[in-house]
């Protein structure tokens, strides 16, 4: 109904001036010799916790986080985490991950142990909202801002990364970029899934008296575990 009317108005409005050219190039953005160092600094500056598992067993690093946060459960929803970041679970129960739903692992006393029981189960929204710790795999990291890129796609949703109070992201070193321009040259938003989120630090607000508080709606504690490529 209003579409033709608005377009007509816009079209004639555009004509009052000759069209302005679209800049063909893009301004430069910083590139870093050692993006890991910058990434760590920026991530810590926004209240995230950076853990370097490049020369360690990622499972051991995960244990550390669980111990520190006093949790024994982690919720996952993608196989990628295990294959990409060198976590050994996949060897045990590959079929768990082909089940189209959330995966939950229990870690005795917060220590990651093998073998481990993984349960694929259907989860109601209420239960999902009550999950204390979740983990995911980042598609990319951006050093300039200490940002993690989280995508949605087959077998991955939007909610698990944002609802819990604690979130753990695994990032492979090879996926760490210097700046956002590089990201947008590599990916085309919307191609892989219906949503993509750039996450920089824990959820925060400063709406009361300009005092910074973490964990307004999303994670209060936010860990990034950097892993070696093809671990």
């Amino acid at each position: 109904m209003s579409r033709p009317r608005i377009l007509q108005k816009v079209r004639s409005a555009c004509r009052v001036k000759p069209p302005a050219p679209l800049p063909s190039g893009y301004p430069g953005a910083p590139r870093f010799q050692d993006p890991v160092d910058v990434f760590r600094r920026e991530l810590e500056a926004v209240g995230g916790v950076f853990l370097d598992a490049r020369n360690r067993n990622p499972a051991e690093t995960l244990s550390q986080v669980l111990e520190q946060t006093g949790h024994t459960e982690v919720f996952w929803e993608e196989e990628k985490i295990f294959t990409k970041h060198g976590l050994p679970y996949r060897l045990r129960l590959p079929e768990s991950f082909s089940t189209p739903n959330l995966v939950f692992s229990y870690h005795y006393q917060g220590r990651v142990r093998l073998p481990i029981t993984l349960a694929a189960r259907s989860i109601e929204l209420d239960r999902l909202a009550a999950i204390p710790v979740s983990a995911s795999s980042a598609a990319f990291g951006i050093a300039e801002t200490g940002t993690i890129v989280q995508t949605v796609g087959p077998g991955r949703g939007r909610l698990l990364n944002v609802l819990p109070e604690t979130h753990i992201v695994f990032l492979a070193q090879g996926d760490l970029l210097s700046n956002m321009d590089q990201l947008l040259q590599r990916i085309r938003p919307g191609e892989e899934g219906s949503a993509l989120t750039l996450v920089t630090g824990p959820s925060r607000t400063a709406d009361i008296g300009k005092v910074l508080v973490k964990g307004m709606h999303g994670p209060r504690r936010w860990f990034v575990i950097l892993t070696e490529d093809g671990g």
């Binding site: 189209p100 899934g193 219906s194 996450v199 920089t200 925060r204």
Partner: peptide, 22 residues
């Protein structure tokens, strides 16, 4: 004064086939 806000959401329509939620 942030280098990036905590979240930047890129939204490309409703949930798609195979996506858990949305």
């Amino acid at each position: 004064g942030q280098k990036s806000t905590s979240y930047v959401n890129f939204i490309n329509g409703p949930r798609r086939e195979g996506e858990w939620d949305g």
